[in-house]
């Protein structure tokens, strides 16, 4: 664990060091290039705002009204039928839609069942092994102004579903012995 912590605290400064050393050796005007590139960041963040805001408000309405809980209750039997433990169903359903909601749900499950329980391990694995599909598509397509997403959403959601099943199978095999 200490090795992992060390690596993760050293890596960013080391990348910066490496880039700056190489650029200085090549006699590049590093500071000027940095400022030039950084300017783009402000534009990008501002142009992202409406995309994020729109998506987050819509998700919040769905959650706040209680409709999302109702929908999860509705699809629960289906997920249970394919072998998803009922405690994990809400997390599995929300993982692709909202990152913050999924994280708080994972925390809740770990708190309730204990980090070393089967459910705790499964929630941990599920949280770590996929990302928030809807957020990623919103940010990346939004930032560069892509209006037609093509098959991206469909493929992303199918992959999420496979990921959920994979997590359950793997955690069951690894930790049940």
């Amino acid at each position: 664990m200490s090795l992992i912590t060390t690596i993760s605290t050293w890596i960013i400064p080391c990348i910066i060091l490496f880039v700056l050393v190489v650029a200085t050796m090549k006699k590049l005007p590093t500071y000027e290039i940095f400022v030039e590139g950084g300017k783009e960041g402000i534009k990008m963040a501002i142009s992202l705002l409406p995309f994020l805001l729109g998506m987050m408000v819509s998700i919040a309405i769905l959650r706040g009204s209680g409709a999302m809980d109702a929908m999860i209750a509705f699809i629960s039997p289906f997920l249970k039928a394919v072998g998803v433990p009922s405690e994990i169903v809400p997390l599995a359903a929300i993982r692709p839609i909202s990152g913050t909601a999924a994280l708080s749900m994972t925390t809740e499950l770990i708190k309730t069942y204990g980090p070393d329980s089967f459910i705790g391990k499964l929630a941990s694995t599920m949280q770590g092994s996929t990302d928030t599909t809807l957020y990623i598509l919103t940010v990346y397509f939004g930032a560069v102004g892509i209006r037609r997403m093509g098959d991206a959403l469909k493929v992303g959601l199918i992959a999420d579903f496979i990921g959920i099943i994979a997590s359950i199978v793997i955690v069951t095999i690894v930790f049940s012995g």
Binding site: T30, F34, E36, G37, G38, G41, I46
Partner: peptide, 17 residues
């Protein structure tokens, strides 16, 4: 979004170098 500004400015600057 505002929080993203710091990250975006820093990494885009460094990546340009």
């Amino acid at each position: 979004s505002i929080g993203l500004i710091s990250v975006l400015v820093f990494w885009l600057g460094l990546m340009r170098i």
